[in-house]
């Protein structure tokens, strides 16, 4: 399976109306991404961490995703602190770390983790169907939503096709190496994958047409905005408001 599921216990936050979660994630991410104050970003990280605790998602689900995200950040840490001009902070062997460089790298790290923890908690935990449904309420082009839904449907199909072709290769004793033969075989595997998936998509589409598909998505379980959603939503609203005020007013933090 391509999908990596988020494991969690049942919680109020996971049953939150996905539309509210989606709007919150978008606003929160934008504020944190454009912020240049470390106080705002640190508070953002703190709030996303509380949100995570409140959602009762398993630690493992969070941590192994954070590791992947922070690989890129670690790469920046190898370069940025040394290449930014400014006041000397400390030096490692012959390389000088500037205070500005260090603070800037720290800012980026906090920003990235704050946004990622929030989106894991509120988006990745929701499941694609609810997400697609929420998107369809938010005036996103219907074609984009349909395309996204079909993509999600086909990812598993294409992945399973890939696995079966790969197994066939292994049975025939093929081993990947850095050689033209390998790359050629690999290209043919991918091309076969395309052809098979394409044929399959055609068949599925014809079957859908036979059943009267006309581009409209029917949804079984509709969102109901309950008072619990409104309470959580207003808490989120105040958090956004607070971050915005601290970011764009002259309050010294």
């Amino acid at each position: 399976m391509v999908r990596v599921e988020i494991k969690s216990k049942d919680s109020l936050l996971l049953r939150l109306d996905t539309r509210i979660g989606l709007i919150y994630v978008v606003l929160f991410s934008i504020i944190i991404a454009v912020s240049d104050k470390i106080s705002v970003v640190a508070f953002g990280l703190l709030s996303s961490f509380f949100l995570f605790l409140f959602s009762r998602i398993r630690w493992f689900s969070l941590l192994h995703r954070l590791v992947f995200v922070n690989i890129f950040i670690a790469f920046l840490w190898l370069i940025l602190p040394f290449s930014m001009p400014g006041e000397l902070f400390f030096s490692i062997w012959k390389f000088n770390v500037t205070k500005e460089g260090f603070m800037y790298s720290l800012l980026i790290t906090l920003k990235c983790n704050a946004i990622v923890i929030t989106s894991i908690t509120l988006l990745s935990s929701q499941g694609i169907f609810r997400l697609v449904h929420a998107l369809s309420h938010l005036k996103i082009s219907n074609k984009i939503i349909y395309l996204f839904f079909l993509l999600y449907r086909y990812v598993d199909v294409v992945w399973n096709e890939y696995l079966s072709i790969k197994r066939a290769l292994q049975i025939r004793g093929f081993k990947f190496s850095t050689s033209l033969h390998s790359y050629k075989t690999y290209a043919y595997v991918l091309a076969t994958l395309f052809v098979r998936s394409y044929n399959r998509a055609e068949n599925v589409h014809k079957a859908m047409l036979c059943r009267g598909f006309n581009g409209k998505f029917w949804i079984l379980n509709h969102f109901k905005l309950g008072y619990k959603d409104l309470i959580i939503g207003s808490g989120m609203f105040f958090n956004i408001l607070f971050l915005t005020i601290v970011q764009w007013s002259k309050i010294i933090f």
């Binding site: 086909y154 991918l190 998936s197």
Partner: peptide
């Protein structure tokens, strides 16, 4: 759209 979606998912895979 189904054909385009197949290419999206192939890109993904």
């Amino acid at each position: 759209m189904p054909r385009v979606a197949v290419f999206s998912s192939a890109f993904f895979v």
